[in-house]
Write a protein that binds this DNA or RNA. Structure first.
Lengths: 199, 199, 199, 199
DNA sequence: TCGTAATCGAGACGGTACGTCAGGTCTTAAC
DNA sequence: GTTAAGACCTGACGTACCGTCTCGATTACGA
C-alpha cells in the first residue's frame, strides 16, 4: 500500500507556506547543480527530486536563478563570512584563500560560478546577482579592506574596489574556464596588491 | 521574384561544402547572440535566420558552441591581433586596452564572454574553448610579454601567465557580471603589473 | 484583445483529460484524411488543425493509427449499426448495402479503408485493427447471419465467416483499388451467397 | 586496398543505361519490402542497399511505386502466369489456388499487397496499379473464364468480372488484414462461383 | 582522334515530420 | 490558502528522408 495509516501521513501544510518544501527545493537545486551540472538544472528536475509540484516552485520563485540565489546567500553567509572586526593582514589574506577554496571545493561555490555564468547569458540574472549577492558582499569586503588599510595592516596599491576586482577577477576567471585555482595564485595576487608581508 | 536573372543564380555547391551556407550560419549565430542574447541562440533560430536547413548545421558543427568558436577565432584574428614583433611597453598596453574594448564593444567580444559563461555550464565547452581559443591566444600573449620583458620595455612583477590572468581576469569578470569595464581599470592593472611607465 | 470576456474563457481542464481536445483531435484526423488523404495525415498536421499541442496527442495516443481507430469505432457504431434483433432477409441485405455505401460515401468508410491499407504496411496496425474493430464487428455480423439463418430468412451456401468474407472482401477490394462499388455488386454477391429472395 | 585488380573493376556504364544498376534497385526494393516492410522502403534505403546513387533512382523511376510495379510485373509474369489455351475446370481452380499461395508465400505477392494498400493512400498509385498491372491481368483472367465457360468446363453464376472480384476480393482482403488465406477458402469460393465439380 | 553527351556514385542542400523534453500556466482535489 | 498532481500549449531538440542539385570520373558515339 502506498497510503499507509492515516496518522502516519506527513502533516501537510494547509494554510501556511511549507518550510519543508522550501528546503527540499533549495537542496534539490543545489544537489542537481553539483551532481549533473547547470544543464540538468531544470524546474522539472528540481520538482521531481524535491518531491514537490512545479507550481509550488513557480509560486515562490520567479525563476530557477532565484532559487540558486537563495541557496547561495544562505550558504555563503554560513561558510564564507567576511571578517568584520579588526581585520589583520593575515585575516584578509585568509579570507581570500578561503574564497579561492570556496570557489573550487564548496558546492555553494559552484552555485556562485553558475550564477556568474548565467549573468552573462541573461541580463536579468546579472541585475539580481549584483543586487542580492555581489553588491552586499562587496560592501562588506570593501569595509574589511578599508579597516585593514586604516590600521596599517595592508598597503593596497589601488583603490579598494579595483583591488578586490583585481584579486577576485582572476580567481573567478580561472574557475569559470575550467583551469585550476592554486593557492599560489592567491598569494601572488595578494602579495602584489596588498603590499609586502610585514616582518 | 525568386528566380532573378539567370547568371545571378547561386552556384550551388554540389558535392562540396557550400561556403555561402557556412558564412550564413556564422553570421546568423553572431547576430542572434548580439541582438537577442544566448538564450535566443537555438539551432533552429540560426537555421531560420541563415536560410539554411538544420541538417546543414548538424552536418558541419557538433554543437552551437563550435559555431561560436568558429566565429570567435576568425573575428578575433582579424580584429584583435596579438602584437608579435618587437613589442614595446606601449604596444603591450595598447593591446590590453584593445582587449577591454573588444570585450565590451565588439560583437566577437560578446561571443567570447558567452563561451566563457557556457564553459562553466558545460565541461566540454570548457575544454574546447581552452583548446581552440584560449590556449593558442595565451601562447601568443605570453610570447609578447616575454619579448617585451627581455627588451626591457616592461618589468612584470609576476610570471607571464599569472600576469596575464591578473589583467584579463578582472576585465572578463566585470564584463561577465554586467559591470562596466572602464579604460582606467586597464591602466591601473597594467600599471601595477607591468611596472611603471618609463619616462 | 486576446482575453475576451471573462465568462467566455474556455474552462480548461486542469488535472483531468480535456474532452474538447480529444474531440478536436479526432475530428482533425478525420477531416485531414478525407480532405487530403493519408499522406497528409501527420501528427504535426493533426495538432495544427486541432489547435492542440503535439505532446497532447502523444500523451493519449501511441500512434495516429489509434486515433483513426477511435474515430472509426465511434462513428461506425453510430452510422453503421449491425442489425441485432430478429434480422430478416431484407435487414441483412440492407446492412450489406449500407456497408457498401459506408465504404464509399461516409468519411468513416475512408478511415476504415485507410486502416486496412495501413494494416498491410505495418503488422502492429493489423493486430490492433483486428482486435479493436474487425473482430468485434465480425462477432456481431456472424450473430446476425446465424439468427437470420435459424429463422429461415436466408439460406447461406457457406459457413457464416466465409460468407461474410465473400461479401465484404470484394467490396473492400474494389474500394481499395479505386474502382467503384455499385449496389448491383452487393446484390449479386448477396443473391449468390444468401440464397434466392423468397417470394 | 579496396579496389582489387584493375581488370576486376566493374565496367561502369558510360553512355548507356546500366542494367546492373537497374536490377540492383529492383532487387533491393523487393528485399527491403519483404524483410522490413513498406515502412523501411525509402528511396534512401533502396539506394544504400543497391549500392546506387539516389539520383540514379530518380532518373529512371518517378517514384518508389513504379519500382515496385516493375518488379511485380516481371515477377508475376514468371511465377503466376494466367493459363491461356484451352483452360479446363481444373486449370482455372489451380490458377486461383496458385494466386492464393502467391499472395501469402511469394515475395512478389507482398509487393502486390503493398501496392494495393498504397493505392488507397494515394490515388496516383491506384491509377498506375490499375493501368500497369490489374487491368492487363484482369483482361487475361476474363479471357480464361470466358473460354472455360464456353467450353462447358465451368458454369459461373455471375458475369466474369464479378466472379473474379468475388474470388480475388476475399483473398486479398484477408491477406491485407493479416488473416490467413487457407486453401479451403479458395475451394469454397470457387465451388460456389464456378459451379459444382463435374463428376 | 577527340570532343560531346549521357551515365554513374557520392553527397550537400533546403525542407518537413518525427517523437521527446522542458518551460510556464492553469485547474483539480485533498488537507 | 497551500499542497501534489498533472493536463495543457509552446517551441526546441537531434534524426531520418524527401527530391533537387552539382561534382568528378567513366564510357560510348559521331564528326
Amino acid at each position: 500500500m502506498s497510503a499507509a495509516s492515516p496518522q502516519s501521513r506527513r502533516p501537510r501544510s494547509g494554510n501556511r507556506r511549507d518550510e519543508a518544501a522550501r528546503l527540499a527545493v533549495l537542496h534539490a537545486a543545489d544537489d542537481l547543480l553539483v551532481e549533473h551540472g547547470f544543464g540538468a538544472l531544470t524546474v522539472e528536475a528540481i520538482a521531481r527530486r524535491a518531491g514537490v509540484a512545479k507550481q509550488t516552485i513557480y509560486r515562490w520563485w520567479p525563476s530557477k536563478v532565484e532559487i540558486l540565489l537563495d541557496t547561495l546567500i544562505e550558504d555563503s553567509a554560513k561558510r564564507l563570512p567576511v571578517p568584520a572586526l579588526e581585520p589583520t593582514a593575515e585575516t584578509v589574506r585568509g579570507y581570500l584563500r578561503d574564497f579561492a577554496r570556496f570557489l573550487t571545493d564548496d558546492p555553494a561555490g559552484k552555485v556562485l560560478l553558475a550564477l556568474v555564468a548565467q549573468a552573462q547569458h541573461d541580463p536579468g540574472t546579472a541585475d539580481r546577482l549584483q543586487e542580492r549577492y555581489l553588491r552586499p558582499r562587496r560592501d562588506q569586503e570593501r569595509d574589511m579592506l578599508t579597516r585593514a588599510s586604516a590600521a596599517g595592516e595592508i598597503t593596497p596599491a589601488l583603490d579598494p574596489d579595483t583591488t578586490l576586482d583585481a584579486v577576485v577577477g582572476p580567481l573567478v576567471y580561472r574557475a569559470l574556464t575550467g583551469s585550476d585555482v592554486p593557492p599560489d595564485l592567491v598569494d601572488a595576487l595578494a602579495g602584489n596588491l596588498l603590499g609586502p608581508r610585514r616582518g
